[in-house]
Each structure stands twice: as structure tokens, then as C-alpha cells.
Nucleic acid binder design. Structure first.
Length: 762
DNA sequence: TCGGGTACTTAGTAATCCGGAT
DNA sequence: ATCCGGATTACTAAGTACCCGA
């Protein structure tokens, strides 16, 4: 097995997509040039100060992380679209070209996080490419694959690979990692097939994603059930019977009445506009003011329904559960190349009101009901095609094995396409994931080269090269150090105003020649993906600072910071530096390398298991902070902390009591010296120990939770951390994998769990 | 080069599940 | 048996990346 997945399958067969003659024309092109002076009264304030030296996490740092509330409103953007566009065009035409080959000399020292150096020094695994990739070769990298153990497996694999088209059921596996048993039993019934180790098999080299694909199509949202007649809607205080269509849309609003969304003006406007489209002419003429609409009875009705659902008897609940399970078994799986694979989202999104995140101009719009006529089915020709519901037709059936989706439709809010795809545990997702980490590992090997190069180019007399280096230095700064997202352009007025690296505007950074005793400090403050605030201050080299100053010159706050840079230019350039390198690889690389480094640093060999896990979580946390993965502090957070604290207090009392007992038992034993009392002493001693352990466990838990208040670990764990690092760590310290990954995660990372041994190095 | 389109990953939150405490 | 709260799962929005044709 080689990790040397060619990373651009999609490129291989460009243009060969079947049937791309289908245009989806229902795109929303009616963007009235609305004013975008929408107030940025962002609902999110959960921003957090991110320490610039995120690399070194000490526990203290976690505890006294300052929180900076988002006092905002300052980032208003008043743009004249036309002017803006023209300006852009003009600037783009002067755009830089990065046509030169990178130089090779090194001169390190760009404010690089220390760990990176360390990492690059160990040149593990010289083992040169055994098994070259099936796809294009990469200029250099020996993809050190994992040492011996894996090599053995490679042989196994070699044998297997012939069977390719046949049903390959790898007999013999089931080295159950303890704890899997439970799952094992459960699924054994449903899945006679033993766990398939796709990672021991050959990948497609022709750009196809599968040879055979059969599924039953998606599950549609249940049809609308009109309200009982006693649930009434009032307009201007008077009862009014709504037509079914209008009523349905009204219920969407009624269901959200408790949510603060419904108080927002944009939401209300959008909703009302779309609602009116569903009304009969009479309704339309009557209902002209949303403020006069009274949805409370509907709202009450739905609340009662929810309540009733909760109160259902066990049997009823069981029945529902079984029904769901049945649907899952029927529609939740497909057959792809001889294997039954779980589908990720087999249900069509039900109609409702669009809930954008942050300050979204389209919040409240009606998300329409999707019908079979909207659905494109993708499956293989020779499969049993899914049947549309009686009396309906699919929009189209195609057989495109260059893509991974099973069904798709065009959504009416943004006009984008939605897909039904496989679960992360599937081969097709897993391979991609694995490949992603291999690309990041290749970056690790040349990151020093990249850094050295742009530093060198910087000094170049030649303007062109210098400019290229500047672009790169932002890469160095923004991607390597800060792990920012790339920052694609977005259509204004279509989405919330958020930015990433390339789309940063002048108003998003501040330069301080001196701040808190540090020289040349850059402050970042902007809203990123999902309108999560990113705030960070970081000292930079003088040269970088000066260049940034230059960039800010003669610009308005709402101008682009990097006016000649966009993700496409950036990625094109990165591609030249390393095959498969794109902006997002830096995030993956950064996250994984940080985890590995933090684990090394934080894990104490003599710690017990809970303490080790705390260390793991802290390492994970370091990454989450780096990547700015935040969450709203759970509503119940304070209370749950209190509960935990009282548990700890109780435990402490218990411990004191146990100690007293032990003492008296000892005294007793001294006097009496018989077997019985001796035994009693032993028992008491054990009790004390046990309680001490429990106490310590609770305290660790409290620390962990406190530190986690507004940081979400899940996202990085699932998307950025090479699972093999975690697996290796578990093996090294004898921590069972279940402590780190839950069942779903174990399924997703089955490949890593199976293949990584404790020596794995990212 | 630009806009449009497509495919796929990454993201936070809401809903639901489930197990332990009462 | 029920209730509570944390853990898990479901959901779907919001990103990245890259292709294509004019």
C-alpha cells in the first residue's frame, strides 16, 4: 500500500464527465442590487482571544485565556459594486505572474514555530518508494510509507489485488481491538461481511470512482399534513383559514417562533416575501403585514406535539425506532463495487426556512420542497435503477462514474447543487482522507524549502520575483503560522460577509509598531467561515511589517488587502512548489504536526490513563485553537460545572472519612495484632486508594471541561488530525482507542487504526 | 481572465440517544 | 421508572478547489 495516492483524480479525466449538458437554470439571478449596508450586528460573540504563540500550550494559558468580546459594527462595508468591480478588473490586469521556478537555497528563520524545525530534522523512513503510485509520479518524495509491518501487509495486498473485480472478502481479519466486541456483535447480524479492508487494495488509476453502483434512491420528506381545524391562524386579530400551501409555509415560521431568528428584520422580510408567493390571491391581498400575523396557536400546537412525542410509551418509541431502522437498511446503503456501503445523507432535505449563519442576507427565505422531478440519479447502467415514487419521475438518470454522488438536486436559495454521498467510513471517502494526510506529510518534507525560498526571494532586486515572494510570505505567515483558510471570493449579497487569507480587507488588520512590549505586531480581526470571529495578534519580522504597511497605503478600509491575489493564483503557485499543494494543505499539515508535537511534549510516561487522556485532549485543544474551532458555550455549562464541583467536594469528604477510618483501623491493628484487624487495615487502605483515584479522575474531568468551554475538539479530530498519530499514541501508551475515538470515529478511521503502529510519525 | 458551474470537504448546531443518579 | 445531562448523530450551511468556455 502506498500512501502515494495521486492527489488529483479529478484532473485526470477532465472533460470526460458524462452528460454535462445539463444546465440548472433555476439559479437566482435576481440579485437586486440591494444595499449591503446591513448592520453587522453579528449574533456571534463567542470569539476568543487566540494567543499568537499557539504552539506552546501550557495549562495556564488555557485557563487564563482572555476572552475578547466582539464589539463590532465597525466593519461596515460600503461599496459601490460597479466601481468596485471596475477597480478590480483594472488591478487584476496588472496581476503578478509567478512564472519562475522556485529557487532551492535555504535560509531559514522566518518567524517559524520552533516545532517545525524539530520535525523536519528527523528524517525518518528513508525507505524509498516501494510501490510507486499508480498515478503520476511526484518529483521527489519517497513516500515513506510506514515501516516494516506495513510492508508485510503490502505483500498481502499484492496478492489480493488481482481479485479486484471479484468480490473481495478478506477472510481472516477481525483482530478485534478490545471493546469493539460490543459493536462487533451487533453488526455481525446485519453485516455478515467481515470488515472490508479497502486500504489493502489497489485504487483506480483511470479517474473513475467506481465500476458498479446500485442504490434505491433518496428518501423524500413526508408530505405536508394540514393542521387540525382547531389550530387557528389569526390575522389582525381575526381568524383566517389558510390555503394548504400558505399554511405549510406559515407552520415553518411558527415552528421557529422561539428562535431569535424570527426577530430579525431581514429574516422576517425574506420570509414574508416568500410566503406571499405561496398565497392565493385573496390571501395575498388580505395578508400584507407580518406583524399582524398571529402564529401562536400553531406554535403551541407544535410544542404540544413535541411533548406528546416525548411522552410516548416505550413500545411506541420502539416501533418508531424499528421503522427508522428499516428505512435505514433499505435506503441507507448502496452497493459500490461489490461492497455494501453506508450512505451519508440519504434523506432529501425537507422544506423549511433557510437559516443562514451569521449575517446572512437570505435568512428566512423559503427552502422549497424537493420532488423526484428535481432529482438526478447517478448509478451504473447495469444496476437496478432506483424507482421514483409512484406517479413521479426522476429529472434524469445518469451513469457518471467519475463522480462519487448517488443523487443530486439544485437548491433554490443559492442555486447550488446538493448531493447524496457516502458515509465517511466508505472506501471512497476514506481513500481521499488518507490521501489528504499523505499530501500534508509531503508538505512537511518541503516546508523548510518553501520557507527558505520565499525569504530569499524577498531580497531579490527584481520586482517580479519580489512580488511573488511577497505573496509567498503571506503564505508563510498566514498559512504556515496562522493556519488561515484560503479565502475564496464570494458573491456579494449572496452570503454573509466573511473572509479568509486571500480575501482579507484592510479593515481586518491593524499594525502596531509596538504593542505590549513586542515590536511589529499585526492584529487580525475578522469573521471567517460560519461567521466565527478570528482574533489574533502576532509579532512579525520587520520586513513583513513594512510590506504590510505598504499594502495598506492609500487604501480604504473596505479594499482588499491583497488586491492582486486570489486563491486561484495562490494555488497555482503552490502547485509549482509541490505537487498537490493547495492552501488548505497548510491547515492539515499545521494541525497534524501540532498534535504530534504537543503529544510528545505533554504526555508524561508516568501518568495514569486519565491524565494521559487529559494530555491528549490538551494537544487536541491546541489544534482546535490554532484552527479557530469554536463553539457556543453550552447553555448548561455553568450548571454542569457546578455539579461536577459538588461531586468533587463530596468525593473529598468521602476521602477524608476513609482516611479517618483507615487511621483508626491501624490503631486498632496495633493494639490487637490479629488477622482480622490486619485485613481490615488492608481493606481500608484499598478504599482510600480507590477514592483518591476517583477524586483525581473527577478533577481531571473538571479541568478538561473548563478548558473546553468554548472550544470544539470534534472538527479538528475529524478533519485535520492524521488519525495515525492518535492511533500510534494510543498504542505507545497503552490507551485503548475507544478512549480517543467513539464508534463513528473508529469507523471513519478504520484504515488508520488498522495500519498505524506505535512508531508512526506524521 | 473571468464568470459560471460542479464536486467535494469542513463546520457548528439542533435533535436524539443513552446511561447513571435519584 | 424517570429524569438529567453529556455524548453522539443528524443535518445542512459554508467553505475549498478546479474545470470550462468565451
Amino acid at each position: 500500500m502506498s500512501g502515494d495516492h495521486g492527489h488529483k483524480d479529478s484532473k485526470i479525466d477532465s472533460g470526460s464527465r458524462v452528460n454535462d449538458s445539463h444546465k440548472h437554470k433555476d439559479k437566482h439571478k435576481d440579485k437586486e442590487h440591494k444595499h449591503k449596508d446591513h448592520k453587522k450586528d453579528r449574533e456571534r460573540e463567542k470569539s476568543k482571544y487566540i494567543n499568537s504563540e499557539h504552539k506552546e500550550f501550557s495549562e495556564k494559558k488555557h485557563r487564563d485565556k482572555d476572552k475578547v468580546k466582539h464589539k463590532d459594527g465597525s466593519l461596515e462595508r460600503h461599496k459601490d459594486k460597479h466601481k468596485e468591480k471596475e477597480k478590480r478588473k483594472e488591478e487584476k490586469s496588472k496581476s503578478l505572474t509567478f512564472d519562475e521556478k522556485p529557487k532551492k537555497e535555504k535560509e531559514n528563520g522566518f518567524a517559524s514555530p520552533p516545532h517545525i524545525k524539530t520535525e523536519t530534522e528527523d528524517g525518518f523512513y528513508q525507505s524509498p518508494k516501494h510501490e510507486k503510485s499508480l498515478k503520476r509520479e511526484h518529483d521527489d518524495d519517497d513516500y515513506e510509507f510506514r515501516p516494516k509491518k506495513i510492508k508485510v501487509e503490502n505483500e498481502k495486498k499484492a496478492k489480493k489485488r488481482k481479485q479486484e473485480e471479484e468480490d473481495i472478502k478478506s477472510k481472516k481479519k477481525t483482530k478485534d481491538k478490545k471493546g469493539d466486541d460490543v459493536d462487533g456483535k451487533k453488526r455481525a447480524k446485519k453485516e455478515p461481511e467481515e470488515k472490508w479492508k479497502w486500504w489493502e487494495e489497489e485504487r483506480y488509476t483511470d479517474g473513475s470512482k467506481w465500476k458498479f453502483l446500485e442504490h434505491k434512491g433518496p428518501v423524500f420528506a413526508p408530505p405536508y399534513e394540514p393542521l387540525p381545524s382547531n389550530v387557528k391562524f389569526y390575522y389582525d386579530g381575526k381568524y383566517m383559514k389558510l390555503s394548504p400551501q400558505a399554511e405549510e409555509v406559515a407552520t415553518f415560521f411558527a415552528k421557529m417562533l422561539d428562535h431569535e431568528y424570527t426577530t430579525k428584520e431581514i429574516f422576517r422580510q425574506n420570509f414574508f416575501k416568500d410566503w406571499r408567493k405561496e398565497m392565493t390571491p385573496e390571501e395575498k391581498s388580505k395578508i400584507t403585514d407580518l406583524n399582524k400575523c398571529d402564529f401562536t396557536e400553531m406554535s403551541e400546537y407544535f410544542k404540544a406535539q413535541t411533548e406528546a412525542r416525548k411522552q410516548m410509551s416505550k413500545e411506541e418509541k420502539q416501533k418508531i425506532k424499528e421503522e427508522n431502522e428499516r428505512i435505514l437498511q433499505e435506503y441507507g446503503f448502496c452497493v459500490m463495487d461489490n461492497h455494501r456501503e453506508r450512505i451519508g445523507n440519504f434523506r432529501i432535505e425537507p422544506p423549511g426556512l433557510f437559516r443562514g449563519r451569521g449575517d446572512h442576507p437570505k435568512m428566512g427565505m423559503l427552502k422549497r420542497r424537493i420532488r423526484p422531478e428535481d432529482i438526478i440519479i447517478n448509478c451504473s447502467k447495469d444496476s437496478k435503477h432506483p424507482k421514483p415514487p409512484p406517479g413521479t419521475k426522476w429529472k434524469e438518470i445518469r451513469h457518471d462514474n467519475k463522480v462519487t454522488w448517488l443523487a443530486s438536486w439544485t437548491e433554490n436559495i443559492q442555486g447550488s447543487i446538493k448531493y447524496i454521498m457516502l458515509n465517511p467510513s466508505s472506501r471512497i471517502k476514506g481513500e481521499k482522507d488518507w490521501q489528504k494526510y499523505e499530501t500534508a506529510r509531503r508538505l512537511k518534507k518541503c516546508v523548510d524549502r518553501i520557507r527558505a525560498q520565499y525569504r530569499d526571494d524577498w531580497k531579490s532586486k527584481e520586482m517580479r520575483i519580489r512580488q511573488r515572494a511577497l505573496c509567498l510570505s503571506y503564505t508563510g505567515l498566514l498559512h504556515l503560522q496562522l493556519a488561515l483558510r484560503a479565502g475564496n471570493e464570494k458573491e456579494e449579497g449572496e452570503t454573509a460577509d466573511t473572509v479568509g487569507c486571500c480575501s482579507l480587507r484592510v479593515e481586518h488588520i491593524k499594525l502596531y509598531p509596538e504593542l505590549n512590549g513586542q515590536e511589529f505586531v499585526v492584529e487580525f480581526d475578522f469573521l471567517g467561515k460560519d461567521s466565527i470571529r478570528y482574533y489574533n495578534t502576532i509579532p512579525v519580522e520587520k520586513r513583513v511589517f513594512k510590506n504590510l504597511q505598504l499594502f495598506l497605503e492609500n487604501k480604504q478600509p473596505e479594499d482588499d488587502l491583497f488586491d492582486r491575489l486570489n486563491t486561484s493564483i495562490l494555488n497555482k503557485h503552490l502547485q509549482e512548489l509541490m505537487d498537490g499543494l493547495t492552501a488548505k494543505v497548510f491547515r492539515t499539515y499545521n494541525a497534524s504536526i501540532t498534535l504530534q508535537q504537543q503529544l510528545k511534549e505533554l504526555t508524561c510516561p508516568e501518568d495514569n490513563i486519565p491524565a494521559k487522556i487529559l494530555s491528549y485532549n490538551r494537544a487536541n485543544r491546541a489544534v482546535a485553537i490554532l484552527c479557530n474551532h469554536q463553539r457556543a458555550p453550552p447553555k448548561t455549562f455553568e450548571k454542569s460545572m457546578q455539579n461536577l464541583q459538588s461531586k468533587i467536594d463530596a468525593k473529598k469528604d468521602q476521602l477524608a472519612e476513609a482516611r479517618r477510618e483507615l487511621k483508626s483501623a491501624k490503631a486498632d491493628a496495633k493494639v490487637r495484632k490479629d488477622e482480622k484487624t490486619k485485613k481490615a487495615v488492608e481493606t481500608k487502605k484499598k478504599a482510600v486508594q480507590r477514592i483518591e483515584e476517583q477524586l483525581m479522575k473527577l478533577e481531571v474531568q473538571a479541568t478538561d471541561r473548563e478548558e473546553n468551554k468554548q472550544i470544539a475538539l470534534g472538527t479538528s479530530k475529524l478533519n485535520y488530525l492524521d488519525p495515525r498519530i492518535s492511533v500510534a499514541w494510543c498504542k505507545k501508551w497503552n490507551v485503548t482507542i475507544e478512549k480517543i475515538y467513539n464508534k463513528t470515529q473508529r469507523e471513519k478511521f478504520a484504515w488508520a487504526i488498522d495500519m498505524a503502529d506505535q512508531d508512526f510519525e506524521f
